[in-house]
């Protein structure tokens, strides 16, 4: 239980996938213009991360490992992730058309989102059990959501600020992203302090 909590909180705060490990920057900058699409995107990413972790674990353990095919794990995992992204796309198109339109190209791009592939590969690298893998995926997804929602809030404020001409648009966004990232460095050592 304690181990799970440590994994969960380090994935959300200390080792935040976007702001500390710098994975999944593309949707972080692309879909953070509006709070609603940021929440929708994070929902989709959490779902894909959880399902991909749940699927890749048995595939690695019972299919690749016994046959000495560990070197193929990246390829197999990408296949599984692509499968779930397609599923999410089909379901969103049917039931949440507005969100499907708002996410646009960023939805299929979850396939190549390195945060998702990163979670599945790190699960294997850290030799997590099945449950711990799921907890890690959930933490990574929630961390992604936290980063995206926080940053969407920051960007909504930046839109109403008097930004110097040369910094308008992407430059100020990247500067804001780096400052948000610096704040997350403040969480270093937090998990050790609470749980150990």
């Amino acid at each position: 239980m304690k181990e799970m909590l440590i994994i969960l909180f380090s994935a959300i705060l200390v080792d935040n996938f976007v702001l500390s490990k710098f994975m999944g920057i593309c949707p972080f900058l692309g879909v953070s213009k509006k709070m609603n699409s940021a929440l929708g995107m994070s929902g989709a990413v959490i779902f894909v991360m959880l399902m991909a972790s749940a699927m890749t674990y048995p595939i690695y353990k019972y299919l690749l490992l016994p046959n000495n095919l560990q070197y193929l794990n990246t390829m197999a995992f990408i296949l599984i992730i692509a499968l779930f992204v397609q599923l999410v796309e089909i379901i969103l198109k049917k039931y949440v058309k507005s969100l499907y339109n708002a996410l646009g190209v960023y939805l299929p791009l979850i396939t190549t989102n390195c945060a998702v592939l990163g979670v599945t590969l790190l699960n294997i690298e850290n030799e997590y059990t099945f449950l711990n893998s799921l907890v890690n995926a959930l933490g990574a997804g929630l961390g992604f959501m936290l980063a995206l929602v926080l940053f969407a809030g920051v960007r909504e404020r930046v839109d109403n600020a008097d930004v110097p001409e040369a910094l308008k648009g992407v430059p100020i966004t990247l500067i804001a992203a780096s400052i948000v990232s610096v704040t997350f460095m403040g969480f270093a050592g937090l998990v050790e302090g609470i749980f150990k």
Binding site: I59, L63, L64, N67, L69, L72, M75, A76, L79, I80, A82, L83, Q86, L87, I90
Partner: peptide, 16 residues
């Protein structure tokens, strides 16, 4: 590996 990937591919394709 080829068979494993064909199997995975067929599974994913069918599901989709």
């Amino acid at each position: 590996p080829a068979l494993i990937f064909i199997g995975l591919g067929i599974f994913a394709g069918l599901l989709l």
